[in-house]
């Protein structure tokens, strides 16, 4: 199963297996990882699953929708070039090993 490395705000690394087809938000939430909320169940409606994606993987991600783009403008922690909503990133073999940094607040 492909792996995702979630790095929390304190710098702790959590490596989790996330099945293909699951989103990075689901992978974190289902395993009880703090730092990602996903209060809208992953329908790209709330911006509480904000993460910073490691540059090496940015190009491999699905394109950002207008809704995601607008939501990222209102995140609780600063938006950076690497900001994405983790509910909009579905796991694939291509993304195996992806590293995402979790923000200070959601």
């Amino acid at each position: 199963m492909p792996k995702v490395v979630y790095v929390d705000f304190q710098g702790n690394r959590n490596e989790l297996e996330v099945a293909n087809g699951m989103t990075l938000m689901q992978g974190a939430v289902m395993n009880g990882l703090d730092g990602i909320e996903g209060e809208c169940s992953g329908s790209c409606a709330c911006a509480t699953c904000h993460c910073y994606v490691d540059e090496a993987y940015l190009d491999k991600l699905p394109e950002m929708s207008e809704n995601e783009d607008e939501l990222l403008d209102g995140t609780a922690s600063e938006r950076l070039g690497s900001s994405r909503l983790s509910c909009q990133i579905r796991m694939t073999d291509d993304l195996d090993g992806i590293v995402v940094q979790l923000p200070e607040e959601q």
Binding site: M22, N31, S41
Partner: peptide, 21 residues
Amino acid sequence: PPLSKGYLLEGADPDTLLFRT
């Protein structure tokens, strides 16, 4: 909530709905 929304369109995998494993 996904049951009437995206669930059937996104492969109907019940594992994706779990709060926790």
